[in-house]
């Protein structure tokens, strides 16, 4: 199949970017979207042109590296998958496809379709962990975890941190990412000790980089793991509880 690409090219973080038109011809329709870009890049290399820079790693939908706006949709038209799992059969022969990087203040463009997502790392550093003494592995099932808690925590833990929620949000808010990471630990018994400091610190860090939630629900639809905005409600509840909790504990610090 033949498609026409309109790709955002930007040589560096501070450079002006623009759309450049490429013709991608003879693309097999079982190629993934990233493989299609590989073919385009091969041709660019052959012609001594600079290939299109884009992030990718596992190409099986579990690492969260890839991601781009395809025709105004994060990860393209197929719901519940990352860009690497989107195949060219989802497009028609002769389609024009516009490709843009994620756009957010917290995700500055590095080059072409590559953005710097270290803001997510800052949020994880603020509280996306549990403090345990390391050493030999503890006995399995030493801490009983209720089935429902395990299920809900797993749903939250499915987040691969790709940033599609921020990219799709009209407010560039990272509430879905942060709430998934908060809930993943706050729902489990192992996360209880730092439950309230975690939510307070992670929300505070998130607000340094990203916008606020307006409950549009776009993030949930764009998420390659279909993580529910129910977790945002959970985070909002824990956040106000953290403020009361902190007050009660203040004298003991």
């Amino acid at each position: 199949m033949d498609v026409i690409l309109s790709v955002w090219r930007q040589v560096g973080p501070d450079a002006e970017g623009e759309f450049v038109r490429y013709e991608a011809n003879d693309i097999p329709d079982h190629a993934s979207f990233l493989e299609m870009l590989d073919i385009v890049n091969e041709n660019l290399n052959t012609n001594n042109e600079e290939p299109i820079a884009f992030d990718h790693d596992c190409r099986e939908g579990i690492c969260g590296m890839c991601g781009m706006m395809i025709n105004g949709q994060a990860h393209g038209p197929q719901l519940g998958t990352a860009t690497c799992q989107l195949h060219m059969r989802k497009f028609k022969d002769g389609d024009t496809i516009r490709i843009e990087p994620w756009r957010a203040e917290g995700f500055p463009v590095v080059r072409d379709l590559t953005v710097d997502r270290s803001a997510f790392d800052r949020i994880i550093e603020a509280g996306g962990y549990i403090t345990v003494s390391t050493g030999s592995a503890p006995d399995a099932n030493l801490i009983p975890v209720p089935k429902l808690a395990a299920e809900a925590a797993m749903d939250a833990a499915a987040c691969i941190g790709c940033g599609a929620c921020v990219a799709a949000c009209p407010n560039s808010a990272a509430q879905l990412f942060t709430s998934a990471k908060v809930s993943h630990l706050n729902l489990l018994p192992q996360g209880q000790a730092e439950r309230f400091s975690r939510v307070a610190d992670m929300v505070d860090e998130m607000e340094k980089w990203f916008g606020a939630c307006s409950n549009h629900g776009e993030c949930e639809t764009a998420c390659p793991k279909s993580i529910s905005i129910d977790f945002i409600a959970l985070m909002n509840r824990d956040y106000i509880r953290s403020k009361f909790q902190q007050g009660r504990l203040a004298g003991q610090r």
Binding site: F19, G72, R103, A104, P108, S172, A173, F210, G211, A212
Partner: peptide, 11 residues
């Protein structure tokens, strides 16, 4: 929060 360069494509 969207940054200085917003989306160029209609969302």
């Amino acid at each position: 929060a969207r940054g200085s360069v917003g989306y160029q494509t209609r969302t």
